[in-house]
Nucleic acid binder design. Structure first.
Lengths: 233, 233
DNA sequence: TGGGCTATAATTAGTAA
DNA sequence: CTTACTAATTATAGCCC
């Protein structure tokens, strides 16, 4: 605790605590990363910060879930013996990796959808490229989000925490729940589905927001949905 | 990294790694404790150490179980919480989510490449679809894998874990790495790059392995690389 | 293995722009 | 609210026992 009395007590001052929390969070994740790299250890961190809207996660959401699951299954894993020969490697490890990839794809898809939805909120309409958008899934994500909002509104408490961090109960931010803004308007705002085959050049809609072309032929490994480095308004 | 080059790479030397691990473990737990106390955040840490009969746990076993359970029971949308007012969401959270998506894509890409490489090992050749394979990146992944194998060969101890940290899976053990099969043969085996525009139907190569068609027009949200539910040999 | 010790790097609380 | 900077504290790699 540089420049301080070195007391290890709760910081009452909001600004100070927030600043300290932010700095220390970053440091902690860095430390976890270092330990992971230096000692060849898989590690993850989940930090629920009341100041942040979403938990800080390292190294990735899927990795966090995988490691926690691993931890829960630890006792039996220790008893296992891994007998690897060529066949088992190509079958077993391959299958394992394939499963992991599936999880990764699922998460990626959900993430794409979430971001797409949020962009729609900003642009004000749903832009659909050549069959690139799974509309049903998008609607599902939107519905889930709406449910989530309702759920939040109905709560009087919200969770925080850190794991290496864990959730902690604290009062819900009233402003968020009561604001009559975009949240409430999601279900009412005018959304349209545009079909377009040509997004080769940037354009703006009537609200002055840039419509980002989806898909990127130059990046063969993009998900064919968003450009790798999109420019957002 | 005092008295060191500051390199963030795996410590090969057993004694050094063990010592470093021990010191850093203690520091990490201390940091978690500090963050928890100073910022009023509930936190826990679990460290698996093969040298210990029981995993190192902070602050208590019951607390760890409670917090992990709490996190796992949290619906995914709550794990990824968003603040739903336009200002904070569209500026801050959107960018953050976008960055996270980028990391996700990178991870996904690597995973795709690894699986593709493993499939190549099994099929015996590199199948290239219409510009779908980033050959340079594939070679990079292959090289990384070779390095990884060498690294694992040089190790005499199994890896440990910390949680939230868990033991790293060893994709290969010594026997596999030393086998004169596909693994060792990556750099030597006859690999060919096939250009094909038509993988619409399944086929088998001369080794009887099925060649899986890449790309899937029916799954609009696939990465455009592999089918979502590929059939592997 | 498990401490001490030390020089050096890294962290960090406070402050200012 | 960041970003940058600084002084003070802490962390830690390498030794030694």
């Amino acid at each position: 605790m540089a420049n301080s009395k070195g007391e290890l007590i709760y910081i009452e001052d909001d600004t100070k605590r927030k600043t300290t929390c932010k700095k220390r969070k970053a440091s902690l994740i860095k430390k976890v990363n270092e330990l992971s790299t230096l000692c060849g250890i898989e590690a993850c961190a989940i930090i629920f910060d009341p100041n942040e809207s979403q938990p800080e996660i390292w190294p990735s959401h899927s990795e966090v879930e995988r490691l926690i699951k691993k931890f829960m299954e630890m006792p039996e894993m220790e008893q296992r013996k891994y007998m690897f020969n060529q066949e088992s490697f190509l079958s077993k490890n391959f299958n394992k990796a394939r499963d992991q990839l599936k999880r990764l794809r699922d998460e990626n898809k959900r993430m794409e959808m979430e971001l797409f939805m949020f962009q729609c909120l900003n642009i004000g309409c749903i832009v659909n490229t050549v069959n690139m958008v799974d509309t049903n899934y998008l609607l599902f994500v939107i519905n889930q989000t709406l449910k989530d909002i309702q759920w939040k509104q109905s709560r009087s408490q919200r969770q925080h925490g850190i794991v290496v961090a864990a959730p902690k109960e604290e009062p819900l931010n009233e402003e968020v729940a009561s604001v009559d803004g975009p949240v409430h308007g999601i279900g009412q705002t005018n959304m349209c589905v545009m079909q377009s085959q040509d997004f080769s050049s940037e354009s703006t809609n009537d609200r002055g927001n840039m419509i980002v072309p989806f898909g990127d032929n130059n990046n063969n490994f993009s998900n064919g949905f968003w450009p790798s480095t999109p420019s957002f308004p």
